[in-house]
Amino acid sequence: MKENINILKNLSNEEKKIFNSLQNEGPITKSEISRLTEIKLTTLNNTMEILEKKRIIVREAIGQSTGGRRPVLYDVNLLEFYIIGIDISRVYTQVIIANLKMEILYKEMFNMDIFCSPQETVRRIYEIINKANQNLRLDSRNLVGVGLGTVGPLDIKNGIMISPVNFSALGWSNVPIKEMLEKKLNCPIIIENGVNAAVIGEYFYGIGKGVENIAYLNCGIGIRTGTVLSSKLMRTISDDEDALGHMIVDVHGEKCKCGNFGCIESYSSINAIIKKFSLEVKKGRKTIINKQLKNIGYKDICIAAERNDNLSKEILIGAALILGTGLVNYINLLNPGLVILSGPLIINSKLFYNECIKTVFKKLHPDRMKKIIFSRGGFFKENAISIGAVALVIKDIYN
């Protein structure tokens, strides 16, 4: 597969410009391509002929006439080329197959249980991709690339998951995940922090188009944050993604796994919510959830809250209050024009999202509120990280 993986990366500068214009704006006419790329017509005709022969671009349709011959509309080839996007989190792993315009052709996920060691996770990813290849009858020669968005902290240069915590399975320390996947899939992998991948996807192809400053929060077992400032991805020194999660909101508060006290993650993460719920039940509080305490998960609490279970509502509202307070601090520091909240807690609890935003409205200066758009899930919702991983591959073509 490796010899075919550079089919789009090896394009000339003119070919990349044409591909870029069609990937973002197509189907469009040749005159529109010329305007967007600023390539002279003779060069454009020759270059487009080469791209058509390679089947990278196709004649999509006939446009509306403006008085003369009806123009031909061109687009990237959405039927043959495909990209694989992988999202590895502590809660689940998801694999998607997408075309050149981020449209999902196939999607499958599995929960990250106690059996999902790094080796088992890679094996399951490989199985899903094989199944997708069979179901979609994909030609491996048309695979553009594979992107991976995963939990940090990461050594991105060497593709190593350094010391992520709170996986259910053992073995998730100093994992050469990039190398493991490359050996199994026999092709190069582009790796990035999951939330960075998500915010990149939203910035280029989703709700963040045209917004220079974006804050993206993934609320799950950790509070993970990806940020675009002045149209550039902001990185921490060690490429951590949990800076907001370890913002201290109570110096005398709960002890956090990081060693400090009163971090947001100690109150507003999945594990913190389950822990608080369990403590309250042990104190004698009542709930409509009819399960053994050890088997109650965050989804049970989210569902119960929607059914007006007082304890579940109280726990989620309290957690949202803390996250919302931290988010106000984050907004004051970075001044984003768009704030996207996503992740398992947001997707599964409208109450949690609404209460978080309500807190922001109460605590943030009204003048600043007028300049911010809030989104629950963004454009790509629960697929944001895996779609973002696909976007990494597309952006790598241009770079």
Rank of each mutant, 00 (worst) to 15 (best):
Y330G: 02
G326S: 09
N354L: 02
G253T: 09
G226P: 00
A320L: 07
G284A: 13
D300W: 00
L229S: 03
D239Q: 11
G226C: 01
K275G: 02
S266T: 12
L327N: 10
N308H: 06
I322T: 13
I322N: 06
K358H: 06
C356D: 01
G226V: 02
S231C: 08
I322Q: 12
I322M: 14
E355R: 07
L321N: 15
I288S: 15
L334D: 01
I315S: 01
P336K: 09
M247Q: 08
T287S: 12
E280W: 02
I340K: 09
R224I: 14
A243Q: 11
L334H: 08
T236E: 00
V339N: 08
L334P: 01
I346R: 10
I288Y: 02
C258T: 12
I237C: 01
I317C: 13
A319N: 03
G318L: 07
D300A: 01
K232C: 06
G262Q: 10
N348G: 02
K299P: 00
G226Y: 03
S312C: 12
T236W: 02
T325L: 14
N260C: 08
S278Q: 12
A272Q: 06
K255W: 07
I331Q: 01
D239P: 00
S342K: 06
K282E: 15
G324K: 09
S269K: 04
I273E: 13
E355D: 11
T359F: 06
I288C: 06
E241F: 11
G337L: 10
S349A: 03
L279S: 14
I273A: 13
I273V: 13
S342T: 15
S231W: 01
A243P: 00
M234F: 14
V249Q: 11
I331P: 02
N329I: 01
P344Y: 05
L229P: 01
S278Y: 12
I289P: 06
G326K: 09
S238T: 05
S349D: 08
K283Y: 08
I347P: 03
G245S: 10
V339S: 10
